[in-house]
Design a binder for these strands. Structure first.
Lengths: 131, 131
DNA sequence: CATTTGCCTACTATGTCAATAGGTTTTTAG
DNA sequence: CTAAAAACCTATTGACATAGTAGGCAAATG
């Protein structure tokens, strides 16, 4: 289940894209428009800056803006960054298969197939597609 | 993320299918074969009985067995029953869209599309496919 | 230089997950 | 007919994640 972190991050990205201009957009404005606590958004937005999704500027006239064009953001990248991973089961998270039973696990192919489906879905769409 | 509840339930189903005969299979045996706490399995198995997936029999010589043929169990039914729902976001769980912003939500189609993909994937496979 | 804004650490309430513990009831095998 | 084996039931627990809240510091500009 996608939590508020990923969903809010996506809404921030959309808000930034829809209000893009030559100025930075204060988080206060985004929080008000989206009806989300500004304080909570700060936590999420921090990861988005660290992950290179957006750029922040302090001081008066500061705020945030996208660091790429909307069509250059795969949705999957935004979600993975803020949710941690979009793996369907714990034994497939982190890149490597860790479970000792994986060699003859009846269910592993099921989860692996679902993971691929999920990955393909979210990486085939970009932020542009949501505008 | 699919939790142990859904994953263990699936493994119980597979174990029951692979050891099917004219006798009931004690949970103790399943727990030992699968390397899962029997006490924890009791909780999960309880829901599976209530949901009509399997049949339990008390007393000596008792245990559990499948109540249908393996090809008549869609994987999605097993997971939904034990996980509660396989909806990707809270606003799509429970059947109805509850969010007040849903009318002009930029992200809802994304989640709805993913939900459909997920549903189709897990309901297109049956227990038989995992054996 | 005061205001606006991002940035940072810490704290908290609530709930879920993954069990564990200890019993009661049911049924059959011997 | 009784003892063992099994399901069935309620309650509790420790760890962790979620979804925030609170308060202040740093930076930049108008």
């Amino acid at each position: 289940m996608i939590s508020t972190r990923g969903r809010y991050a996506l809404r921030v990205m959309i808000d930034l894209a829809e209000h893009a201009g030559d100025m930075y957009i204060p988080l206060k404005d985004i929080a008000e428009r989206q009806g989300i606590s500004k304080k909570y958004l700060e936590i999420i937005v921090k990861d988005m800056v660290a992950g290179g999704l957006i750029t922040g500027a302090s001081g008066k006239g500061g705020g945030y803006r996208l660091s790429r064009r909307p069509e250059d953001y795969p949705i999957g990248e935004i979600i993975e960054l803020t949710e941690g991973s979009l793996a369907s089961v714990a034994c497939l998270a982190g890149g490597s298969v860790s479970c000792p039973r994986s060699a003859d696990c009846r269910t592993l192919p099921l989860w692996a197939g679902y993971d691929k489906l999920t990955h393909d879905y979210f990486f085939s769409k970009t932020l542009q597609d949501l505008l």
